[in-house]
């Protein structure tokens, strides 16, 4: 038991477990976590699916010409991502709109569900975001080569730069291309993990009467910030996906 226990303060000890919220554990009973164990990850992901279905299917079941509130949100989400794909990746990127919509809806819903008290935030796990980012990376690379063939390598050959600089730029472009999935995944997981951990730390301080008001205020403020972050990170992930897709569809600089 190597738990971090910070010193006693006025007789009551403050124990910080800001990372415990991220522990993956079986939902029913104990035991090892293997691939098919039903864990809290399963539960929260299932809840994410249920919420997405509720929003996009139950919300639009009226197919109303004048939308209800939930239908407006569903249409807003649809229009938001659709326009993003169209604007960033171009008209030919719209073929991949359902995939990008899947990514966006999963991330934004998981982020918001993670903000519920006692929730488990699936998107705060690097394993999850890495799979998402790698899927995007692989898909985009494959699309790039399938659509453009060897011309896709032109992405790394900056033809507008002086000839002498081009090999150097090619190396830089190549490195930056392969760093993409790393930054893509760590940005999302890191932001969410940090925010949730900070909230937990401040919440722990609330146990001390003297600083409780301050810490509760801080929790509220950071919670507000996290609501913003939850949306912005989903947006950033999605728009970067669109940018990578644009590179794959139109590799020329």
């Amino acid at each position: 038991m190597a738990e971090e226990v910070h010193g006693a303060e006025g007789g009551s000890s403050l124990s910080f477990h800001p990372m415990d919220q991220f522990i993956v554990q079986p939902l029913f009973g104990d035991g090892p976590v293997n691939a098919f164990t039903i864990t809290n990850v399963t539960f929260w992901m299932a809840l994410t699916v249920a919420c997405i279905a509720a929003l996009l299917i139950l919300g639009t079941r009226g197919r109303a010409l004048i939308p209800s509130r939930i239908q407006s949100i569903a249409e807003l989400a649809y229009g938001f991502v659709y326009k993003m794909v169209e604007d960033v990746a171009g008209k030919d990127g719209l073929k991949y709109f359902p995939y990008i919509m899947t990514l966006f809806m999963f991330i934004v819903m998981a982020n918001f569900l993670g903000l519920l008290p006692m929730a488990f935030t699936t998107t705060s796990h690097i394993a999850v975001t890495a799979v998402l980012a790698l899927a995007v990376f692989l898909a985009v690379t494959i699309i790039g080569f399938v659509k453009n063939g060897a011309a896709f390598l032109g992405l790394f050959w900056v033809s507008s730069a002086p000839l002498a600089l081009r090999p150097i730029l090619a190396v830089i472009e190549l490195i930056s291309y392969f760093v993409r999935p790393l930054s893509h995944s760590i940005r999302l997981a890191g932001n969410l993990m940090a925010g949730h951990a900070v909230i937990k730390v401040f919440a722990t301080f609330a146990a001390v009467a003297a600083i409780a008001p301050l810490s509760i205020l801080a929790v509220v403020a950071i919670y507000g910030l996290e609501v913003l972050v939850a949306f912005i990170q989903a947006y950033v992930f999605t728009i970067l996906t669109c940018v990578y897709l644009k590179d794959a569809l139109h590799p020329s600089h």
């Binding site: 864990t39 997405i52 299917i57 999850v128 998402l132």
Partner: peptide, 24 residues
């Protein structure tokens, strides 16, 4: 825990994809 997360993530994404592309 990676295998578990990745497995359920893939299941989730596939389900969301079908829900979105077929119905929503």
């Amino acid at each position: 825990t990676f295998a578990n997360q990745i497995f359920w993530l893939v299941v989730t994404l596939v389900v969301i994809y079908f829900v979105l592309s077929r119905v929503a």
